[in-house]
Design a protein around this nucleic acid. Structure first.
Lengths: 106, 106
DNA sequence: AAAGTTATTCTATTTTATAGAAAAACATAG
DNA sequence: CTATGTTTTTCTATAAAATAGAATAACTTT
């Protein structure tokens, strides 16, 4: 069974949750929000690059740019390989966490 | 919120699950079993040492030794700090995984 | 005391995480 | 159309964690 690193897990799931709005910036904001801590730029983009290399995510551009100028924003989405990796990983998670009070997954 | 590394998470939960039988050897066997892959000796003992340093686990010896000779076996248990770390971590896990099909935790 | 057995410690290497400066890419003012 | 400001990403460096297995320690039995 292939296991995801911590950041791969968090970033993958954040992209999934953000849906059409998953860009480097929003991913970073989202992760900061749910973890309640500061995340550097590199702490987001380095795992993003690795996830692309692994084929778990890909990016695309939108026609509607931001109005104030600035570099074109990348939007990320989870590939079918990435989705499969998450599903596989969830199985492992369940076998690791089963029996822990408050963890309810069947 | 403090987050656990992948190995810290897996090792902590393995110790918890193995209860009175959690030694370096059995932890390694257990992790191999649930992950279905090979784990080196170092892949177990290095995180174990780190968890001790962090105060998340501690070890003790048993009066009944193994009969065939060999070094005294350490038995590990999760401390209250370790338990708390797991509980905190579960909260994060939930906020990260909520909405993913098959992940049911409330 | 020597030999055999079992478990842990230690050291080295690879991979992942983290940080933020630098660079790129775009819009608009002059 | 060049300069300037803005936004986002790339790049590079360092720290931390993961992984591997040889070496060592600690114990039993011959």
């Amino acid at each position: 069974m292939k296991l995801l690193s911590r950041q791969e897990e968090i970033v993958l799931l954040s992209i999934r949750k953000l849906e059409e709005d998953a860009s480097g910036i929003t991913i970073r904001e989202h992760i900061s929000k749910i973890t309640g801590k500061y995340w550097s730029i590199g702490a987001i983009y380095v795992p993003l690059d690795r996830l692309i290399e692994k084929g778990y995510i890909e990016f695309y551009f939108k026609d509607i740019y931001n109005k104030k100028g600035g570099r074109k924003k990348r939007f990320y989405k989870v590939t079918s390989e990435g989705q499969e990796a998450l599903e596989d990983f969830l199985k492992l998670q369940k076998s690791v966490w089963v029996g822990f009070p408050g963890y309810a997954a069947d």
